[in-house]
Design a protein around this nucleic acid. Structure first.
Lengths: 251, 251
DNA sequence: ATATTTTTTAAATGAATTTTACATAATAGT
DNA sequence: ACTATTATGTAAAATTCATTTAAAAAATAT
């Protein structure tokens, strides 16, 4: 690989669908093609951005036009310094002496998170949980559109939930490719989860929201987030029991 | 406060319900009472323990008797060294040259997480989501028993879901105290979540699993874990869009 | 105008977390 | 019984991440 160039100073983003570059990003040449490699951003930072986004959305809905890092920090229980640092990974959004324009920052983060488009989503498994997910009204307003559902069970195939006909797994590859689906939600029993995840990886899914109580293994270009209420509860019971400070009377 | 003693070498746990102490823990005297302060364990470590526990459970179910850190790491996508380090915060559970006895480690972690008892849980909000939670069969086997449900809406009060009569919020304090409930699951709309969380804190709830898309503020002795699929999805779309490496033809 | 507020940036510090490396102990094979 | 191998536990090093500090710049309020 022939090294080409590192961006040493920030270049503010242009208009619509282009790639924003920043300090630390790299352009390199490989054969007859140039590649852009975006600078590393800590995962913890990436996980906080959606929370900033949601809070800004709430503020915007309630008519707020400006907010500073201090107030935002109070709402989210995060220090103002950290909020400023996090945002600075992506650009300069604030006005000195004033704070952040809510609508402007909201738009900026929408771009950062890739939410300035619609993401098509497939749901795998239409049991009790899968049906609840399909019926959940929260995905649409944030740009996630459930466009297909699948189930292994022939008795489910053909049924209709939330306006979606349940398809057999054999149609997965076709539908994912035709509809250009990149995101899947897994709502099958633990016993089937690994097999299903492998199939999803195979057909080109790049992000999986996994509700099964497992930790599926995927190539690192396929992201997985697990939602497991038991795991969350257990992490809390650790504290519940360890905080029982023992009191021994000495008298 | 009169300083008393720091534990300098590990004392293996005794029998049933006592508190396991270890290197770094402190005993101090305050008035006529002795207090035990357990050594700090990183939050990330605490979050991983339930995953070890779940995987060991699976292994145990499928008849495995021994596992080493390498194999466990492969399953969980964690380095063997990290697993050993994590476990070493709580004691010595392995045998050199062999690995960990699955059943023994499982029991040990059950104790660490405080799962060697039953935890009573209250569910707040019996809408679509709340009912799905009450009906979810996964809580019971892990020692979490949903013993009460509440709703603000008078039309829901008195109805029965999953064998539980829905109670009015006015009975919250009484029931929580009589039943000694320490854990609550919040499944109310975002607009009510903060108010509900405040009520829960007030009546002595110490751990909250929050399904509402908010980040409620609590005193630091009350733990909160948020489950928000939108936030999880958005953290992934960041990578989906930023990984679109741009390819520019140079020919 | 001037003082105040608040952001941005960089650098330095500090804290938390992960990895490395190795002494030590158990096991398995000969 | 001896040797080679395996795998833990942990101290120390390395890394990553978070926080603090300081200084410059921009906006607002007095």
């Amino acid at each position: 690989m022939l090294f080409w160039s590192i961006i040493h100073s920030f270049m503010p983003s242009g208009g619509g669908g282009d790639v924003t570059m920043q300090k630390g990003d790299m352009i390199y040449q490989n054969g007859d093609t140039a590649h852009i490699h975006l600078a590393h951003i800590p995962e913890v930072v990436v996980s906080r951005i959606p929370q900033y986004f949601r809070t800004l959305n709430d503020l915007f809905q309630s008519g707020e036009t400006v907010i500073n890092s201090q107030s935002l920090g109070k709402i989210l229980q995060i220090t103002p310094a950290q909020i400023r640092k996090d945002l600075s990974y992506f650009g300069k959004f604030g006005k000195q002496g004033k704070g952040y324009n809510v609508e402007y920052l909201l738009d900026a983060l929408r771009g950062v998170l890739g939410l300035d488009r619609e993401w098509k989503v497939a749901v795998i498994g239409v049991g009790r949980l899968g049906r609840a997910i399909i019926g959940y009204p929260g995905f649409g307003p944030d740009g996630f559109k459930i466009v297909a559902s699948f189930d292994e069970d022939p008795r489910q195939v053909g049924q209709s939930f939330g306006g979606l006909i349940v398809r057999p797994m054999s149609e997965l590859a076709n539908v994912v490719s035709k509809e250009n689906i990149k995101i899947a939600i897994v709502a099958v029993p633990a016993s089937q989860a690994n097999k299903v995840v492998n199939m999803l990886v195979e057909v080109g899914i790049k992000a999986i929201l996994n509700y099964a109580p497992t930790s599926p293994i995927t190539p690192k270009n396929v992201r997985v987030r697990n939602i497991d209420p038991i795991v969350s509860l257990q992490a809390m019971t650790f504290y519940l029991q360890s905080e029982k400070e023992v009191e021994i009377s000495l008298v």
